[in-house]
């Protein structure tokens, strides 16, 4: 985290776990196991978070105001009341947008430098 930087930029660059959790919550609230599954599906199994990584990240993201707990229950038929649901907070959405813009900038730079030419 860069010192002296205000706003969403102070969280950048995000750790892989925080980035993937924000991305998993981008299309709606989820409980812990659903976040874990979504991350595995999104990355085709390349990113597998353990419970410690998941809840350690969730704890820090709640404290930083990137996500918040949700009382809503999306599907009462499938719901388990013991589970906690999480959703993106407004700050989390801004941070996610800025991080993806930062990554897109890096991708554009790599493309301009022909990083992929002759690879694969």
């Amino acid at each position: 985290m860069a010192e002296g930087v205000k706003g969403p930029e102070r969280f950048l660059p995000l750790t892989p776990a925080v980035f993937h959790i924000l991305l998993a919550l981008a299309d709606g609230e989820k409980h812990g196991y659903a976040i874990m599954q979504e991350v595995e599906d999104m990355t085709e199994g390349r990113v597998q978070m353990g419970p410690g990584t998941l809840y350690g990240s969730i704890k820090r993201m709640l404290a930083a105001g990137l996500i918040e707990e949700s009382d809503d229950r999306p599907d009462p038929a499938l719901d388990d009341e013991r589970r906690r649901y999480y959703r993106l907070a407004a700050l989390g959405r801004k941070v996610l947008r800025q991080e993806t813009e930062r990554m897109a900038g890096l991708m554009a730079l790599a493309r301009r430098k022909h990083v992929w030419s002759g690879v694969g």
Binding site: G32, Y33, M36, P51, G52, L54, Y55, G56, I58, K59, R82, R83, R84
Partner: peptide, 21 residues
Amino acid sequence: AYPERFRAEYGPHMAQVFRDV
């Protein structure tokens, strides 16, 4: 192995997720 406060807050949820996995 986790600190007591962390365990009290998230331990049951971690165990539930581990069961699911």
